[in-house]
Protein backbone atom coordinates (compact mmCIF):
# COMPACT_ATOMS: atom_id res chain seq x y z
CA UNK A 1 0.00 0.00 0.00
CA UNK A 2 2.72 2.44 1.05
CA UNK A 3 4.74 1.62 -2.02
CA UNK A 4 1.69 2.24 -4.22
CA UNK A 5 1.20 5.65 -2.66
CA UNK A 6 4.89 6.41 -3.01
CA UNK A 7 4.92 5.46 -6.65
CA UNK A 8 1.77 7.51 -7.16
CA UNK A 9 3.39 10.57 -5.64
CA UNK A 10 6.48 9.97 -7.73
CA UNK A 11 4.39 9.69 -10.89
CA UNK A 12 2.38 12.76 -9.95
CA UNK A 13 5.56 14.81 -9.62
CA UNK A 14 6.89 13.49 -12.93
CA UNK A 15 3.62 14.43 -14.61
CA UNK A 16 3.59 17.74 -12.80
CA UNK A 17 7.01 19.00 -13.89
CA UNK A 18 6.09 19.86 -17.51
CA UNK A 19 2.93 21.50 -16.19
CA UNK A 20 5.03 23.47 -13.71
CA UNK A 21 7.34 24.78 -16.41
CA UNK A 22 4.37 25.71 -18.56
CA UNK A 23 2.47 27.43 -15.78
CA UNK A 24 5.48 29.41 -14.51
CA UNK A 25 6.11 30.60 -18.04
CA UNK A 26 2.49 31.57 -18.44
CA UNK A 27 2.40 33.32 -15.05
CA UNK A 28 5.40 35.47 -15.97
CA UNK A 29 3.81 36.28 -19.31
CA UNK A 30 0.39 37.00 -17.84
CA UNK A 31 1.83 39.26 -15.15
CA UNK A 32 2.74 41.68 -17.92
CA UNK A 33 -0.83 41.56 -19.23
CA UNK A 34 -0.19 39.22 -22.13
CA UNK A 35 -2.54 36.23 -22.21
CA UNK A 36 -0.40 33.87 -24.23
CA UNK A 37 -2.65 31.06 -25.44
CA UNK A 38 0.25 29.94 -27.61
CA UNK A 39 1.91 28.21 -24.66
CA UNK A 40 0.79 24.71 -25.78
CA UNK A 41 2.37 25.34 -29.16
CA UNK A 42 5.50 26.79 -27.61
CA UNK A 43 5.87 23.70 -25.43
CA UNK A 44 5.61 21.47 -28.49
CA UNK A 45 8.28 23.51 -30.24
CA UNK A 46 10.45 23.48 -27.13
CA UNK A 47 10.26 19.71 -27.15
CA UNK A 48 10.87 19.15 -30.83
CA UNK A 49 13.72 21.67 -31.06
CA UNK A 50 15.41 19.84 -28.23
CA UNK A 51 14.92 16.60 -30.12
CA UNK A 52 16.28 18.08 -33.35
CA UNK A 53 19.32 19.53 -31.55
CA UNK A 54 20.00 16.29 -29.74
CA UNK A 55 19.50 14.23 -32.90
CA UNK A 56 21.90 16.31 -34.98
CA UNK A 57 24.48 16.14 -32.21
CA UNK A 58 24.15 12.40 -31.70
CA UNK A 59 24.50 11.83 -35.44
CA UNK A 60 27.46 14.08 -36.00
CA UNK A 61 29.82 12.56 -33.46
CA UNK A 62 31.09 9.03 -32.95
CA UNK A 63 30.91 9.02 -29.21
CA UNK A 64 28.59 11.32 -27.33
CA UNK A 65 29.50 13.26 -24.23
CA UNK A 66 26.54 13.51 -21.81
CA UNK A 67 27.13 17.14 -20.90
CA UNK A 68 27.26 18.15 -24.57
CA UNK A 69 24.09 16.16 -25.27
CA UNK A 70 22.37 18.24 -22.64
CA UNK A 71 23.88 21.55 -23.71
CA UNK A 72 23.10 21.17 -27.41
CA UNK A 73 19.52 20.06 -26.93
CA UNK A 74 18.92 22.61 -24.18
CA UNK A 75 20.16 25.46 -26.35
CA UNK A 76 18.17 24.25 -29.33
CA UNK A 77 15.05 24.03 -27.21
CA UNK A 78 15.53 27.50 -25.76
CA UNK A 79 16.13 29.00 -29.20
CA UNK A 80 13.02 27.30 -30.60
CA UNK A 81 10.72 28.49 -27.86
CA UNK A 82 12.28 31.96 -27.89
CA UNK A 83 11.54 32.29 -31.61
CA UNK A 84 7.94 31.24 -31.01
CA UNK A 85 7.53 33.77 -28.21
CA UNK A 86 9.05 36.45 -30.41
CA UNK A 87 6.39 35.79 -33.04
CA UNK A 88 3.75 36.28 -30.37
CA UNK A 89 5.37 39.36 -28.87
CA UNK A 90 5.95 40.95 -32.26
CA UNK A 91 2.38 40.39 -33.40
CA UNK A 92 0.68 41.46 -30.17
CA UNK A 93 3.04 44.23 -29.05
CA UNK A 94 4.45 45.80 -32.16
CA UNK A 95 1.59 45.03 -34.53
CA UNK A 96 -1.07 45.23 -31.80
CA UNK A 97 -2.90 42.11 -32.94
CA UNK A 98 -5.57 40.41 -30.86
CA UNK A 99 -3.93 38.25 -28.21
CA UNK A 100 -6.42 35.38 -28.24
CA UNK A 101 -6.33 34.92 -32.00
CA UNK A 102 -2.55 35.23 -32.14
CA UNK A 103 -2.18 32.73 -29.32
CA UNK A 104 -4.47 30.18 -30.93
CA UNK A 105 -2.70 30.57 -34.26
CA UNK A 106 0.61 30.09 -32.49
CA UNK A 107 -0.66 26.90 -30.90
CA UNK A 108 -1.86 25.55 -34.25
CA UNK A 109 1.49 26.47 -35.76
CA UNK A 110 3.55 25.08 -32.89
CA UNK A 111 1.73 21.77 -32.70
CA UNK A 112 2.08 21.54 -36.48
CA UNK A 113 5.82 22.18 -36.29
CA UNK A 114 6.20 19.60 -33.54
CA UNK A 115 4.29 16.88 -35.32
CA UNK A 116 5.75 17.70 -38.71
CA UNK A 117 9.36 17.46 -37.66
CA UNK A 118 8.59 14.63 -35.28
CA UNK A 119 7.14 12.69 -38.19
CA UNK A 120 9.66 13.56 -40.87
CA UNK A 121 12.95 14.32 -39.12
CA UNK A 122 14.23 10.82 -39.81
CA UNK A 123 13.20 11.10 -43.45
CA UNK A 124 15.38 14.16 -43.89
CA UNK A 125 18.30 12.06 -42.71
CA UNK A 126 17.23 9.10 -44.86
CA UNK A 127 16.49 6.85 -41.96
CA UNK A 128 13.43 4.92 -40.95
CA UNK A 129 11.84 3.93 -37.67
CA UNK A 130 11.01 6.32 -34.89
CA UNK A 131 13.05 8.95 -33.15
CA UNK A 132 14.75 7.88 -30.00
CA UNK A 133 17.76 9.62 -28.56
CA UNK A 134 19.04 7.11 -26.06
CA UNK A 135 22.21 8.93 -25.00
CA UNK A 136 20.56 12.31 -24.58
CA UNK A 137 17.63 10.76 -22.77
CA UNK A 138 19.96 9.00 -20.37
CA UNK A 139 21.91 12.18 -19.75
CA UNK A 140 18.72 14.00 -18.83
CA UNK A 141 17.42 11.18 -16.66
CA UNK A 142 20.56 10.95 -14.56
CA UNK A 143 19.35 11.23 -10.97
CA UNK A 144 21.21 12.34 -7.88
CA UNK A 145 23.79 9.64 -7.12
CA UNK A 146 22.67 9.08 -3.54
CA UNK A 147 18.94 8.96 -4.32
CA UNK A 148 18.72 5.19 -4.60
CA UNK A 149 20.48 4.73 -1.27
CA UNK A 150 17.82 6.64 0.61
CA UNK A 151 15.20 3.95 0.20
CA UNK A 152 11.59 4.84 -0.35
CA UNK A 153 12.08 8.54 0.36
CA UNK A 154 14.90 8.81 -2.13
CA UNK A 155 13.01 6.92 -4.77
CA UNK A 156 9.92 9.03 -4.35
CA UNK A 157 11.32 12.51 -4.06
CA UNK A 158 14.88 12.49 -5.32
CA UNK A 159 14.87 10.18 -8.32
CA UNK A 160 14.38 12.87 -10.98
CA UNK A 161 16.65 14.33 -13.60
CA UNK A 162 18.12 17.78 -13.12
CA UNK A 163 15.35 19.55 -15.06
CA UNK A 164 12.83 18.67 -12.35
CA UNK A 165 14.82 20.53 -9.73
CA UNK A 166 15.42 23.34 -12.19
CA UNK A 167 11.67 23.76 -12.48
CA UNK A 168 11.26 24.17 -8.74
CA UNK A 169 14.19 26.57 -8.52
CA UNK A 170 12.78 28.63 -11.39
CA UNK A 171 9.42 28.75 -9.62
CA UNK A 172 10.96 30.00 -6.37
CA UNK A 173 13.26 32.48 -8.07
CA UNK A 174 10.48 33.92 -10.20
CA UNK A 175 8.30 34.22 -7.12
CA UNK A 176 11.03 36.26 -5.41
CA UNK A 177 11.62 38.40 -8.49
CA UNK A 178 7.93 39.06 -8.98
CA UNK A 179 7.19 39.93 -5.38
CA UNK A 180 10.37 41.33 -3.89
CA UNK A 181 12.23 43.25 -6.59
CA UNK A 182 11.71 46.47 -8.44
CA UNK A 183 11.63 44.62 -11.74
CA UNK A 184 8.79 42.47 -10.46
CA UNK A 185 6.93 45.49 -9.17
CA UNK A 186 7.26 47.22 -12.52
CA UNK A 187 6.08 44.09 -14.30
CA UNK A 188 3.02 43.74 -12.10
CA UNK A 189 2.25 47.43 -12.51
CA UNK A 190 2.25 46.97 -16.27
CA UNK A 191 -0.07 44.01 -16.00
CA UNK A 192 -2.52 45.94 -13.88
CA UNK A 193 -2.50 49.21 -15.78
CA UNK A 194 0.01 49.78 -18.55
CA UNK A 195 -0.95 53.42 -19.05
CA UNK A 196 -0.13 54.25 -15.43
CA UNK A 197 3.12 52.33 -15.61
CA UNK A 198 4.02 54.14 -18.82
CA UNK A 199 3.33 57.47 -17.17
CA UNK A 200 5.62 56.45 -14.33
CA UNK A 201 8.43 56.05 -16.83
CA UNK A 202 8.49 52.26 -17.13
CA UNK A 203 9.33 51.01 -20.60
CA UNK A 204 6.14 49.02 -21.18
CA UNK A 205 7.16 47.61 -24.51
CA UNK A 206 10.48 46.28 -23.30
CA UNK A 207 8.95 44.68 -20.22
CA UNK A 208 6.17 43.02 -22.20
CA UNK A 209 8.58 41.73 -24.80
CA UNK A 210 11.00 40.37 -22.23
CA UNK A 211 8.40 38.76 -20.02
CA UNK A 212 6.79 37.05 -23.01
CA UNK A 213 10.18 35.89 -24.20
CA UNK A 214 11.38 34.61 -20.84
CA UNK A 215 8.01 33.07 -20.06
CA UNK A 216 7.97 31.28 -23.39
CA UNK A 217 11.48 29.94 -22.92
CA UNK A 218 10.61 28.58 -19.49
CA UNK A 219 7.47 26.96 -20.89
CA UNK A 220 9.53 25.45 -23.70
CA UNK A 221 11.64 23.68 -21.08
CA UNK A 222 8.47 21.85 -20.08
CA UNK A 223 8.30 20.36 -23.55
CA UNK A 224 11.98 19.51 -23.34
CA UNK A 225 11.52 17.77 -19.99
CA UNK A 226 8.67 15.75 -21.42
CA UNK A 227 10.56 14.45 -24.45
CA UNK A 228 13.94 14.01 -22.81
CA UNK A 229 13.19 12.86 -19.29
CA UNK A 230 9.64 11.50 -19.29
CA UNK A 231 9.79 9.66 -22.60
CA UNK A 232 13.60 9.31 -22.48
CA UNK A 233 14.38 10.91 -25.81
CA UNK A 234 11.57 9.44 -27.86
CA UNK A 235 9.04 11.47 -29.80
CA UNK A 236 5.50 10.37 -30.57
CA UNK A 237 3.23 12.69 -32.48
CA UNK A 238 0.67 14.37 -30.24
CA UNK A 239 2.32 12.56 -27.34
CA UNK A 240 2.46 15.77 -25.34
CA UNK A 241 -1.32 15.96 -25.60
CA UNK A 242 -3.27 18.71 -23.90
CA UNK A 243 -0.72 19.38 -21.16
CA UNK A 244 -0.16 22.89 -22.49
CA UNK A 245 -3.78 23.82 -21.85
CA UNK A 246 -3.60 22.25 -18.40
CA UNK A 247 -0.59 24.45 -17.67
CA UNK A 248 -2.75 27.47 -18.47
CA UNK A 249 -5.45 26.07 -16.17
CA UNK A 250 -2.90 25.74 -13.36
CA UNK A 251 -2.14 29.45 -13.62
CA UNK A 252 -5.69 30.08 -12.45
CA UNK A 253 -5.64 27.29 -9.92
CA UNK A 254 -2.46 28.78 -8.44
CA UNK A 255 -3.99 32.27 -8.49
CA UNK A 256 -1.08 33.70 -10.48
CA UNK A 257 1.43 32.84 -7.74
CA UNK A 258 4.55 30.96 -8.89
CA UNK A 259 5.05 29.34 -5.49
CA UNK A 260 1.57 27.88 -5.36
CA UNK A 261 2.07 26.69 -8.91
CA UNK A 262 4.55 24.10 -7.61
CA UNK A 263 2.01 22.26 -5.47
CA UNK A 264 -0.80 22.88 -7.95
CA UNK A 265 1.20 21.29 -10.75
CA UNK A 266 1.82 18.19 -8.67
CA UNK A 267 -1.86 18.00 -7.77
CA UNK A 268 -2.80 18.28 -11.42
CA UNK A 269 -0.13 15.77 -12.32
CA UNK A 270 -1.69 13.44 -9.80
CA UNK A 271 -5.20 14.01 -11.12
CA UNK A 272 -3.90 13.37 -14.62
CA UNK A 273 -2.82 9.83 -13.80
CA UNK A 274 -4.92 8.96 -10.76
CA UNK A 275 -7.09 6.65 -12.89
CA UNK A 276 -4.16 4.27 -13.20
CA UNK A 277 -3.77 4.01 -9.45
CA UNK A 278 -7.37 3.49 -8.38
CA UNK A 279 -7.82 -0.27 -8.24
CA UNK A 280 -10.77 -2.01 -9.84
CA UNK A 281 -11.72 0.66 -12.37
CA UNK A 282 -13.26 -0.44 -15.63
CA UNK A 283 -11.79 1.14 -18.74
CA UNK A 284 -14.92 3.26 -19.23
CA UNK A 285 -14.91 4.71 -15.74
CA UNK A 286 -11.24 5.54 -16.19
CA UNK A 287 -12.31 7.96 -18.90
CA UNK A 288 -14.66 9.63 -16.42
CA UNK A 289 -11.90 9.96 -13.82
CA UNK A 290 -9.70 11.61 -16.45
CA UNK A 291 -12.12 14.54 -16.41
CA UNK A 292 -11.05 15.48 -12.90
CA UNK A 293 -8.35 18.06 -13.67
CA UNK A 294 -10.68 19.96 -15.96
CA UNK A 295 -13.60 19.81 -13.55
CA UNK A 296 -11.40 21.04 -10.73
CA UNK A 297 -10.22 23.96 -12.86
CA UNK A 298 -13.77 24.95 -13.64
CA UNK A 299 -14.73 24.80 -9.99
CA UNK A 300 -11.74 26.96 -9.02
CA UNK A 301 -12.59 29.42 -11.78
CA UNK A 302 -16.14 29.76 -10.58
CA UNK A 303 -15.15 30.03 -6.93
CA UNK A 304 -12.56 32.77 -7.44
CA UNK A 305 -14.93 34.74 -9.59
CA UNK A 306 -17.67 34.37 -6.99
CA UNK A 307 -15.48 35.43 -4.07
CA UNK A 308 -14.17 38.50 -5.91
CA UNK A 309 -11.14 38.80 -3.65
CA UNK A 310 -8.83 41.47 -5.01
CA UNK A 311 -5.59 39.52 -4.61
CA UNK A 312 -7.05 36.49 -6.36
CA UNK A 313 -7.96 38.22 -9.58
CA UNK A 314 -6.06 38.06 -12.84
CA UNK A 315 -3.93 41.09 -13.81
CA UNK A 316 -6.42 43.74 -14.76
CA UNK A 317 -5.21 44.44 -18.27
CA UNK A 318 -4.84 40.75 -19.10
CA UNK A 319 -5.59 40.13 -22.75
CA UNK A 320 -5.84 43.80 -23.69
CA UNK A 321 -3.56 45.44 -26.19
CA UNK A 322 -1.86 48.56 -24.92
CA UNK A 323 -1.64 51.51 -27.24
CA UNK A 324 -0.28 54.68 -25.74
CA UNK A 325 -2.42 57.08 -27.72
CA UNK A 326 -5.68 55.32 -26.98
CA UNK A 327 -7.96 56.84 -24.41
Amino acid sequence: MLSTIASFINAAIIQGIPLLFGSIGEIITEKSGNLNLGIPGIMYVGGISGIIGGYIYEHSVEKTVPILCILVSLCASLIGSALMSLIYAFLTQTLKANQNVTGLALTTFGVGVGNFFGGSLLKFFNESGSISLLDTGLAYKKALPFASKLGLFGNTFLSFGFLAYTAIIIAIVSSIILNKTKVGLNLRAIGENPATADAAGINVNRYKYLSTLIGGMIAGLGGLYFVMDYTAGAWTNNGFGDRGWLAIAIVIFALWKPKSAILSSFIFGGLYIICVYIPGLSSSSKEIIKMLPYLVTIIVLVVISARKKKEHQPPQSLGLTYFREER
Binding site: T94, L95, A97, N98, F109, G110, F116, G118, G119
Partner: peptide, 24 residues
Protein backbone atom coordinates in the same frame (compact mmCIF):
# COMPACT_ATOMS: atom_id res chain seq x y z
CA UNK B 1 5.93 14.32 -51.55
CA UNK B 2 5.78 11.84 -48.66
CA UNK B 3 5.64 14.50 -45.98
CA UNK B 4 3.75 14.58 -42.75
CA UNK B 5 0.19 16.00 -42.95
CA UNK B 6 1.02 18.43 -40.14
CA UNK B 7 2.51 20.65 -42.84
CA UNK B 8 -1.07 21.90 -43.20
CA UNK B 9 -0.99 23.31 -39.68
CA UNK B 10 2.32 25.02 -40.31
CA UNK B 11 1.10 26.66 -43.52
CA UNK B 12 -2.21 27.67 -41.90
CA UNK B 13 -0.32 29.18 -38.99
CA UNK B 14 1.98 31.21 -41.23
CA UNK B 15 -0.86 32.55 -43.35
CA UNK B 16 -2.84 33.52 -40.27
CA UNK B 17 0.19 35.26 -38.76
CA UNK B 18 0.46 37.37 -41.87
CA UNK B 19 -3.20 38.22 -42.01
CA UNK B 20 -3.49 39.20 -38.35
CA UNK B 21 -0.24 41.10 -38.67
CA UNK B 22 -1.46 43.10 -41.65
CA UNK B 23 -4.45 44.41 -39.68
CA UNK B 24 -1.96 46.71 -38.02
Amino acid sequence: FKLNTSIADILTGIIIFFIIGCEF
